[in-house]
Design a protein around this nucleic acid. Sequence first.
DNA 1: GCCAACGTTGGC
DNA 2: GCCAACGTTGGC
Length: 159
Amino acid sequence: MQYWLFKSEPDSYSFQRLALEGRTEWSGVRNYQARNYMKSMQVGDLGFFYHSNTSPPGIIGICRVIRTAYPDFTALDPQSPYFDPRASAAKPIWEMVDVAFERPLERFLPLELLRAHQPLAAMALVQKGQRLSVQPVAAKEWQAILALALQPDAVADPE
DNA sequence: GCCAACGTTGGC
DNA sequence: GCCAACGTTGGC
């Protein structure tokens, strides 16, 4: 059982949409490191759902891996924005997992708040220049974020 | 809209 | 194998 963080631009695919649809294919990842993380995922792994490239960016909810990695067929589809001419059925190159809606966080956690929270100082997400769309989350970071979400909005971060 | 950081490409 | 140029990500 491992923890992850999935980034998505809400204009492209939002957590609200996942809530409506129940599950989705996490297709379109075109970064080798992110792909390799997906290949190591197991059914039942949990992930934070992060809204990027929006104002404000942050973690909005939780999703769950429901299918392990398999070939990302959008890479083979010339009509897809994720088409990759190097990919073939025999060598798909890119893979994806399926994820399901789990639950929203008790409150939205903006990146600014996560950055200011000392227990998350080493978290990949808050490192300068990081842009991996799929990344691992340490168990301690996972628990710290769950706890943070339970703090009422008005309460200042004690750190 | 700007631009820093990053990954990839391709010439050499 | 090096590294400059380029395209993309994503915070601000």
